[in-house]
Amino acid sequence: MKLYYSPGACSLSPHIVLHETGLPFTAVLASTKTKKLQDGTDFHTINELGYVPVLELDNGERLREGPAIVQYLADQVPGKNLAPANGSMERYRLQEWLTFIGTELHKGHSPLFAPGTPEDYKPQVRERLQARFAWVDKQLAGKDYLLGQFSVADAYLYTVSRWGQYVGVDLSGYANIVAFQQRMEQRPAVQAALRAEGLLA
């Protein structure tokens, strides 16, 4: 398998999950700025939408969108318990979290990364994100992970919660999120993905 990624982008989530699975894969750097691979290939020939992540399977088929990719990966190694069983209420809880992180947190950051966003609009964006993270902080009370035990949703939350340091969304007041981030950073798979993306100090 190949994972097309950009350092620190949302592709960090499947990158972490790949390390959790233990499955063999190749990580291929795809610049979100130049839209080119390191060998000069136009990334649009891999994903015409021009963004990461993309998972290329050994048969050449490609899967886009992080929440779909991480569930696919989890289902390849059911014994690792990275996602609850398909059809169970717990699986729908996982999908609920993946959807919330994708729509409320991930896309909620988009205006802060977009160069054309008016400066006077950004405080509203940050305020909305703070409110969403405050809710997540409450959900993590008394739990190590979103579903109680580690799942692919935690890799996505960890990835998105890292972005605040770059766009002025301060999460330091949310003790449960801070503890969650620290817990995640102790996982060997997280360390391996961060190291591979050049994100470890």
Results as ranks from 00 to 15, higher is better:
residue 43 F to T: 06
residue 100 F to W: 14
residue 87 G to D: 01
residue 158 Y to T: 00
residue 151 S to R: 07
residue 35 K to A: 12
residue 125 V to L: 02
residue 3 L to W: 05
residue 90 E to F: 05
residue 198 G to E: 05
residue 125 V to C: 03
residue 101 I to P: 06
residue 182 Q to W: 03
residue 169 V to R: 08
residue 57 L to M: 11
residue 181 Q to A: 09
residue 175 A to V: 14
residue 113 F to C: 02
residue 200 L to N: 10
residue 39 D to A: 08
residue 156 Y to F: 14
residue 136 V to A: 13
residue 39 D to Q: 06
residue 151 S to K: 05
residue 36 K to H: 06
residue 105 L to A: 06
residue 94 L to F: 07
residue 65 E to H: 05
residue 89 M to I: 07
residue 184 M to H: 09
residue 178 V to T: 12
residue 32 T to G: 13
residue 54 V to Y: 10
residue 69 I to M: 11
residue 58 D to A: 15
residue 114 A to H: 15
residue 134 A to H: 13
residue 3 L to I: 14
residue 174 Y to E: 04
residue 23 L to F: 06
residue 1 M to C: 10
residue 56 E to L: 13
residue 103 T to C: 15
residue 195 R to V: 02
residue 95 Q to T: 08
residue 31 S to K: 09
residue 123 P to G: 03
residue 14 P to H: 15
residue 163 W to E: 01
residue 41 T to Y: 09
residue 118 P to A: 04
residue 114 A to L: 10
residue 157 L to W: 03
residue 181 Q to D: 02
residue 52 V to K: 10
residue 79 G to M: 00
residue 198 G to W: 09
residue 87 G to Q: 00
residue 9 A to Q: 09
residue 194 L to E: 01
residue 102 G to E: 01
residue 53 P to H: 14
residue 112 L to V: 10
residue 49 L to V: 08
residue 25 F to H: 13
residue 163 W to R: 12
residue 182 Q to Y: 02
residue 181 Q to Y: 07
residue 53 P to A: 14
residue 58 D to F: 11
residue 61 E to V: 12
residue 183 R to S: 07
residue 80 K to E: 00
residue 4 Y to P: 12
residue 164 G to H: 11
residue 150 F to P: 05
residue 8 G to N: 07
residue 75 D to L: 01
residue 124 Q to Y: 15
residue 193 A to H: 09
residue 11 S to L: 08
residue 114 A to Q: 13
residue 99 T to N: 14
residue 75 D to G: 06
residue 150 F to V: 07
residue 189 A to T: 04
residue 50 G to K: 11
residue 47 N to M: 08
residue 56 E to S: 15
residue 107 K to Q: 14
residue 134 A to S: 15
residue 84 P to G: 02
residue 197 E to V: 01
residue 149 Q to G: 15
residue 135 W to N: 12
residue 119 E to F: 07
residue 58 D to K: 11
residue 6 S to D: 15
residue 5 Y to N: 12
residue 67 P to K: 04
residue 57 L to V: 02
residue 40 G to K: 09
residue 10 C to S: 10
residue 115 P to D: 09
residue 91 R to H: 05
residue 113 F to T: 01
residue 30 A to P: 00
residue 192 A to L: 03
residue 68 A to M: 02
residue 201 A to W: 06
residue 99 T to I: 05
residue 139 Q to P: 04
residue 54 V to Q: 06
